[in-house]
Each structure stands twice: as structure tokens, then as C-alpha cells.
Design a protein around this nucleic acid. Structure first.
Lengths: 150, 150
DNA sequence: TCGTGAGTTCAGATAGTACTAAACGCACTT
DNA sequence: AAGTGCGTTTAGTACTATCTGAACTCACGA
């Protein structure tokens, strides 16, 4: 017995859910993302709730989080009062850009610590600096990739 | 009133704690890491507990997690029954390598989904493939960095 | 061989996050 | 205006992961 297409889809959705959860988003947001990657075309708000078996409130929260991150778009259809959602164009590029930015911000945050470390502690300064620099290098590398993807 | 060196240190430790927490480690593990980056030299097990104000059980769990990730090392001193911990050599390189591996594994996991998606759904296949490929590209870029750091 | 001091383990307490369901506000139709 | 159908907000709940503290194991020295 091979798996049905629905089973494959659900597994995929769960995988994306877990993947994005480990990136700090609510799992439901990840599952919404998964569903939209799978479908490709716009999916209605209420269909998301029924298919993913979560409340409308959760869908509202999840879609807002994904829109904030520019991963998905809200679209409307003339004569239809429902909201629809679909993958944003360039959503993968956005994902990579955001990742780069995340490391950049972490680097900056640590770098700021250096201001408070006195000159007479050069070894501490060096270790903090190296940490910050490692993060910045990661940010730069991922940033390169983002540019290549355009 | 400028901040004392202890205040700066504690802020740094908290920052690393939050940073590593967002990478999926317990916050205490991150704080231990922060303390060891700051100190540089080996720090005694019990000193970690008192300085970070957490139980010995937490220190035990946190240090094990960090040792598993090759971020720190356990060291001993002759005639001293306590365990000491210090930053692993190449801990930053290890951090970058692990990051690369993390994306690689995610990519593989998604790629495996493709086996179940029938040929008659080329658009779904393409979207899933593109997602997996994006993750693999990130893994490769970070992997490059890891090699450059050696 | 018993006592001490070290780290580990585990059961229970705690905190933080995300979910549900219901109330709500808004826009469109009648 | 009133009714309907939509998404949003929020109060309460449930879950999960981490922390604590006590019991435990082990190695060493008296």
C-alpha cells in the first residue's frame, strides 16, 4: 500500500511546520506556510482552518506572522468577501535575506558589548569580538546567496 | 555612572543565553557558554552554579549539551576533584559547521518528500524542490565559511 | 570500610507559549 | 437600520520544556 497524495501532503505540511517552529515561529504558522507551498494557488482563510484543523483565531495569528515576514500575501477576489492567501513572490529569497539579517543583528548586538569592556581586558575583548565577527561572517555569506538568487 | 565590569559581563552572559536559546538550546546552556567565553580560562562546576544562580542539576544538563555540541570541554586539575569547563578550541568553527549541517539535514528531509509526489504534479514537485534547494544552498554557503575559518 | 565531596538523575514544580472559543468590530446587503 | 458573514482580539486553558531539590552513585582519603 503506497501513500495517498493527501498523506504525502500532510506529511509535507507537518515537516514545514516543525522546520519553521525550530526557527521560532508558531508551529501553526509553519503549517500554513507548508499548505501554501503545496497548493501554490490562493487558499481561502476558512479552508486553512478546516484543512489544518485549527481555530480561525490561530489562522489569523499565523497568517499575520507570515505576512510580517513577507513569506505570504493576502489576496482578495472580486465579489468574494473571504481573504485568500498565497506564497509571496520571491518568498525563498525573502527567507534567505531575513536569515542573513538575523545573524547580522545578533552580531551587532554582541559587538555593542565591546563598548563596555575596558581596554585593559584585551583578551576578553578579543573573544567577544571573535564571536561577533563569526556571526557577521555568517550573515555576509548568506547575504551573498540572497543576492545570487535575484 | 558608568557600568561596572561585572554588569557588562552579566549583560553579555544574558545576551549569549538568549542568542543560544533562539537556536534551540536551554537558556542556561547559553549562559554557561557566555560565562566561558567571557572567562576564557577554565571555570569550576560549582562556580558556574553560584555565579549563574542556578542549581547544580541545571549546570550538569547544560554542560553536557554544550559538550555534545563540541562547544566546550571538560577539564580537570591534578589534586582537585572538581570538574572545570572551558571553551573548546575551534568552538566558533564548530558552531558554523553545525549550522551548515543543520540546514543540510533540513534540506534532505524535504527532498525525501519528493519521492512521494507523483510525476503528474510537476508544479508541486517544483515548489518542494525549490524549497529544499534553497536550504541546501544555505548549507553550502555556510559550509564554505566553515572551511575558510580553518 | 566508612565518610566526604564530587557530578548525575529524576520526580515534581514552574514558566512561557500557543491554542481554543467566544465576544467583538467592521463592511456589505437587504 | 438590521442582519449576515467575515477576520481579529482576548481571556482562559493546555501543553511543553526547563529548572529545582533531593536522592543517588562513584571515587578517594582517613
Amino acid at each position: 500500500m503506497t501513500k495517498s497524495i493527501e498523506e504525502i501532503r500532510d506529511e509535507f505540511i507537518e515537516k514545514i511546520g516543525l522546520l519553521m517552529q525550530s526557527d521560532g515561529l508558531p508551529r501553526t504558522a509553519g503549517r500554513v506556510m507548508g499548505a501554501l507551498v503545496w497548493e501554490g494557488s490562493p487558499v481561502a482563510f476558512c479552508d486553512l482552518a478546516t484543512e489544518l484543523q485549527v481555530s480561525r483565531g490561530s489562522i489569523s495569528t499565523a497568517t499575520r506572522a507570515l505576512i510580517d515576514r513577507r513569506m505570504i500575501r493576502r489576496v482578495t477576489k472580486p465579489g468574494d468577501r473571504q481573504d485568500y492567501f498565497q506564497l509571496a513572490e520571491k518568498s525563498y529569497e525573502t527567507m534567505v535575506e531575513d536569515l542573513s539579517l538575523k545573524f547580522h543583528r545578533r552580531s551587532e548586538e554582541l559587538y555593542a558589548t565591546l563598548d563596555g569592556v575596558p581596554e585593559c581586558e584585551p583578551e576578553i575583548r578579543e573573544r567577544v569580538r571573535a564571536y561577533s565577527e563569526t556571526l557577521e561572517s555568517v550573515a555576509k555569506k548568506i547575504g551573498e546567496l540572497a543576492k545570487e538568487m535575484v
